[in-house]
Structure formats: C-alpha cells, structure tokens
Amino acid sequence: MSAASIPAATLHGLIAEYDTPEQVLHAAEAARKAGYTKMDTYTPHPIEGLDDALDLKPTRLGFAVLAIGLIGAATGFGMQWYAGAEFYPLNIGGRPMNPWPNYIVITFEVTVLLSAFTAGLLMLARNGLPRLYHPVFNAPGFERATRDGYYLCVEAVDPRFDPAATHTFLEGTDPVRVEEVAR
C-alpha cells in the first residue's frame, strides 16, 4: 500500500479491480452499507442489480423522450395542416381540405425521428459524452474495464473518504488489487 504516493489535492479516488461481476456487485453493496455515496463501477457490460447496489435513482430519460415525441407529433401534424388547410388549400376532387388520415404517416415519422434522436443524444449528453478525458482512465491496467475487469472506484470527494481507511475497506472486499487514481 502506498497511501501518500499521490497528493490529496490531485487524488480522484481509490479504485479496486475484480475478476467477476458478482464480486463488484457485492463490493458496491458493501460500500453503500459502509456509507459511501460518491462512487461508481466500471464494467465491460451492464450488470443486473447494480442500480440497487449503487443506489442509483431510475433514469428519467423516458419522460424526456415522451415529451419530445409529443412535440414531434404536434409539429408533424401541424406542418401538414398548415400547408394543406391554411397556407395553400388545394381542392382535390371536393375532398376535405384537412384530410387527417393522409397526414398520419408523416406525423408518425416525425414523432419517431425526434424521439429516437432525443433518446440517443440525450443519453450521451447526460453521460457527459463525448468527453475523451476522464480521471478513471489513469487507473493502472484500466484497459481491462472493456474486456474482463470489473472496477469499483470510491471518489475522494465522498464525505466518508479517507485514503487509509477506504483503502483498508476496499482490500476487505476481495479485489485483485486496489490502486490510487490521479485526477
């Protein structure tokens, strides 16, 4: 253990590396029970139960997508209604000026277009992406996080964080190793 190798001012946190998803799940649960709040896991694939273990609030992405989708539907229909019934009404064989069934397809397509891009791009934005630099990439051997390594990082901003005590705590969760991460 090398508690003082990185000065506290530039310490992002302590990261523990595990070999299996179960280990990181248990470690995250133990850390939450120990009172840590500013922590995150880094894993090659999503793990069931991690949301509860990390005490993550459910994402509200769905509501944003619904709202934008409704705006898309109104825009799509409104555009066609305005063009066909208000701006330049066309009398085609005496049919109604506002033939709403004809407008359903484009209304649907505009709805899907706006909602899909909201889902995709808002997810990226809320995750802070694109952001090519992140302190956690400083962790030694972090390349395993996209292969078969499972990581739990307790951040230095956590009120209960203490370089020595947190290190001991993480060592107790059966990791491969515990390392300091520079900011």
Binding site: A28, D40, T41, Y42, T43, P44, H45, P46, I47, L50, D51, L54, L56, T59, L61, M123, L124, R126, N127, L129, P130, R131, L132, Y133, H134, V136, F137, A145, T146
Partner: peptide
C-alpha cells in the same frame, strides 16, 4: 466518445 462503462452510464445506456 470517451465511454468508460460506469454504472450510471450503463443505466442510461440500457
């Protein structure tokens, strides 16, 4: 785009 596989990121991603 700097993906790091964090728990919160996976939740939103899924």
């Amino acid at each position: 785009l700097g993906w790091n596989g964090s728990g919160k990121a996976w939740q939103r991603y899924n």
